[in-house]
Amino acid sequence: MNPLAYGLLFVVVAPIFGGLLAGVDRIVSARMQGRIGPPLLQPFYDVGKLFQKEARQVNPVVEPLLLGHVGFMAAAGALALGGTDLIFIAFVFALAALCLVLAAGSVNSPYSFAGAERELVVLLASEPFFILMLAAICKVTSASTFAGVLASPVMVALELPGVLLAFLFVATIKLRKSPFDISTSHHPHQELVNGLTSDMSGRLLAYVEMAHWYESALLCAFVVLFFNWSVPLGLLAFAIAYGLEVLVDNSTSRAKWQLVLRSTWAVTLLFTGGNVLALFLLGR
């Protein structure tokens, strides 16, 4: 199949995947708390309802920036599967996250602004990892595209165990899971209200949710890169990793931003940096 078709496929399929994942997440979380939880399709009901509601706009820049957030997030995934250089994807990915930061930061609400600042902190914490991860994957496989990595005979996860471990850690940030959900909150009555999304209503909030679906799908694609010899194995690994994230989410409380930044950088430097260094020294 043409890589371009894969890219288009991502734009269509990723939200379905991400939405279902969010549905499973909510059910599993509820079961962990001794509840039954909502229907599987609940995330789709929520987003559908948000589109039926009024969108209160507090200034004219929020909606375009949020459209940019969804657009660049979808573009990051589509470009990745569409055969664009993987390192370039790291930058588009960061740009998408930045759009959300700017949308929330442009609002005068203290909650929204604090969320934006903290999102900037977690972006600062996680971005070095993603650049290093994609660079390391390109290095071991001598490939530059998604298809190239999948076609490579090198088993990425075996060459990059440290990077894979660090991925588990950093994905907590990107999946907005506790203890690293410092910029937003799905739970009421906290110091942040809803952080980043405090002043986004109706379809504005729906854009954020959809972008998150794309983001989850892209993270899943990244996991598949590690298990490039078998895509089903990669999907299984993602499922296990996601399960662990949900468990951590339900068993920890939110950390301070200082801890998030320090620990993520330490893990990136130790595991990812160490792995990359070993790779270069061994001449792989």
Partner: peptide, 22 residues
């Protein structure tokens, strides 16, 4: 919201934010 009644079964979310609430 507790396991006994679990209103999230019906999609109810306690948002804590007027901008999100119905």
């Amino acid at each position: 919201l507790t396991p006994l009644y679990d209103v999230e079964r019906f999609g109810v979310v306690n948002t804590g934010n007027p901008k999100h609430a119905d």
